[in-house]
């Protein structure tokens, strides 16, 4: 599914440059659920952004589903993101003047799907996260947990191969966090490959594999016994 070899990334800061990722090797198979952990500055977000094609690598290789991801034009990157990736953000990043249904339908709009198909499909995904009745509500009328569920539905709408989550529970209280994690685990059970960045141990333990980053290198990469979130809900 995903193959990263000797990935390097640095940012110019003033006259010098900050070496953020110093040779990352990572391989993720279909159906895995991986947590990337690390303190701030460890490079975990940068790694996720590169995997999400929001940022470019300096050197090394990144192969997604057999496709080498390098020197993409913005247009191509947008197309790949739309086709292969679903994003879940810490702050949900819903569009505040669009209702839940429209937000979920947005990736499908960019796929060029017809309005009717889009709404149908978006409603189906909203139903999957249990928010079909909230389809016409604006983000500000929904709770944080509900908003994150809308965001998950949106990430799923285009049926991506890989779900990328950047601190998906970072803005939520513990109970809601576990609710959201239960959803994400359920998605993984259904076969979706999931990669998330988190700095919370309990959340990481709900994944099947933990990759620990420190100062731009992988310190540890272990399979764990998944803690089911639904037992706390």
């Amino acid at each position: 599914m995903l193959e990263i070899r000797d990935l390097q990334k640095s940012y110019p800061i003033g006259g010098t440059s900050l070496h953020v990722l110093k040779g990352i090797n990572l391989s993720i198979k279909d159906g895995e659920m991986v947590a990337i952990m690390g303190s701030s500055g460890s490079g975990k977000s940068t790694l996720l952004n590169i995997i999400g094609m929001l940022d470019e690598l300096d050197s090394g290789e990144y192969i997604l589903d057999g496709l080498p991801i390098k020197n993409l034009t913005e247009k191509k990157a947008a197309l790949y993101r739309n086709k292969f990736l679903g994003f879940i953000f810490q702050s949900f990043n819903l569009i505040n003047y669009k209702n839940a249904l429209e937000n979920v339908a947005l990736p499908l709009y960019y796929q060029g799907m017809s309005r009717k198909d889009r709404q149908e499909k978006a409603l189906f995904h909203l139903g999957k996260v249990g928010l079909a009745d909230w389809a016409k509500h604006l983000p500000k009328e929904l709770s944080g947990g509900q908003n994150q569920r809308v965001a998950i539905a949106r990430a799923l709408a285009a049926n991506p191969k890989l779900l990328l989550a950047d601190e998906p529970t970072g803005a939520l209280d513990t109970t809601t966090s576990y609710e959201i994690m239960a959803f994400i685990q359920q998605l993984n059970d259904e076969g979706k490959t999931i990669l998330m960045v988190t700095h919370e141990e309990d959340i990481a333990n709900m994944c099947k594999r933990i990759v620990r980053l420190k100062d731009g290198v992988i310190m540890e990469d272990t399979k764990v016994i998944q803690v089911r979130a639904d037992q706390y809900v």
Binding site: G52, L54, E74, K75, A78, L79, R81, N82, K83, F87, F89, N93, I95, L106, P107, Y110, Q111, R154, A158
Partner: peptide, 16 residues
């Protein structure tokens, strides 16, 4: 800016 960033993450091409 942020909204546009989100749209692009969701697959909006610069042209769109």
């Amino acid at each position: 800016t942020k909204e546009i960033g989100v749209r692009r993450a969701l697959g909006a091409t610069p042209f769109l």
